[in-house]
């Protein structure tokens, strides 16, 4: 009945909480779930998600995964919508700086651990990096079948016809697949997986990525993973191959033509401009241009 005394961090952290906030028992439970997720690519492992001091929907799944993985030698980058300075990214980065005392960065290439909401950085990730996604609804079949008892069986039987039907109905109605984000993928030819609400523009980056990709859904209590160099294929049809978004104009700040752009409304007369959603990518390009000009 008596439990072992809680272990405390040797590293000083704020307010008497353990290193990276979670207690060691919780970290072990999450770590075991992560290892199983890596061994079954794309499969959603249930885990006993804890109540975090941030609201559900603000990235509690990603935060728990990061907290279970992060160590004192890590350099953490947190982005939301591709940007390091969006309020929620700032808030999560602060949470780990406070509770884990780790170094943080805005530079993609310097980070060992990147927690993200809705984007994959434009700079290709490398083998020393881990990308942690915040996931709201981990089940790609949820909008077709709301019941967990049913979707669990569909995954077990590899019964994914309903997803193809849904995409094909788009083609019949609109002449193209209308899904623009959270675009479903097959992992290593087996599990159907939600990439989280990233734009489909980012789907090709997931395929055979050198970095390990971990996904945490806190409210739904699921963890899943894509190991490095694993095939991630966006669903499509022979006569309607998968394609990504493109823009008619380059980034108004750095001139990039190959990055995902945010639309910014500049006045109330239809004025708008397009800028890189990945703020680090945009800044790096502008810095390089300045250097070249001098």
């Amino acid at each position: 009945m008596t439990m072992p005394a809680p272990t405390r961090a040797s590293t000083p952290t704020s307010e008497g909480y353990n290193f990276a906030y979670l207690d060691e028992q919780t970290k072990r439970m999450i770590r075991r779930a992560i290892l199983k997720a890596v061994a079954i690519p794309g499969y959603q492992v249930p885990f006993a998600g804890r109540e975090m001091p941030l609201p559900y929907g603000w990235g509690t799944g990603g935060i728990q995964v990061t907290a279970a993985v992060i160590g004192p030698k890590d350099v953490l980058k947190v982005i939301d919508q591709g940007a390091d300075d969006t309020t929620n990214a700032v808030s999560i980065r602060r949470f780990f700086a406070r509770t884990a005392g780790v170094a943080t960065t805005e530079a993609t290439r310097e980070a060992t651990l990147i927690q993200t909401r809705h984007r994959i950085p434009e700079l290709p990730l490398n083998e020393r990096q881990i990308l942690v996604y915040q996931v709201p609804i981990p089940e790609p079949l949820r909008w077709m079948e709301p019941r967990e008892t049913e979707t669990r069986k569909m995954h077990a039987l590899e019964e994914y016809g309903v997803m193809h039907v849904k995409l094909y109905e788009d083609i019949a109605r609109f002449g193209r697949i209308a899904t623009s984000y959270n675009y479903p993928v097959r992992v290593d030819g087996r599990y159907l997986m939600s990439p989280s609400p990233t734009p489909k523009f980012d789907n090709p980056k997931m395929d055979r990525m050198a970095a390990l990709q971990l996904f945490g859904a806190g409210r739904e209590k699921r963890i899943y993973a894509v190991p490095p160099y694993t095939e991630v294929k966006s669903l499509d049809f022979d006569d309607h191959p998968f394609e990504v978004q493109s823009w008619d104009q380059p980034c108004a700040l750095c001139g990039a033509t190959d990055s995902y752009l945010d639309e910014v409304i500049t006045d109330d007369r239809g004025g708008r401009m397009f800028v890189c959603s990945d703020t680090d990518h945009c800044r790096r390009r502008r810095d390089a241009q300045e250097e070249a000009a001098q």
Binding site: D80, P199, Y260
Partner: peptide, 24 residues
């Protein structure tokens, strides 16, 4: 706590997915 979080998370930025929808 779950419901409140998920309903209210809609006020977090969704520029990126909205941009995808706009393009479509």
């Amino acid at each position: 706590v779950e419901a409140s979080g998920f309903v209210q998370h809609l006020k977090l930025p969704h520029y990126v997915d909205f941009q995808g929808e706009l393009a479509t």
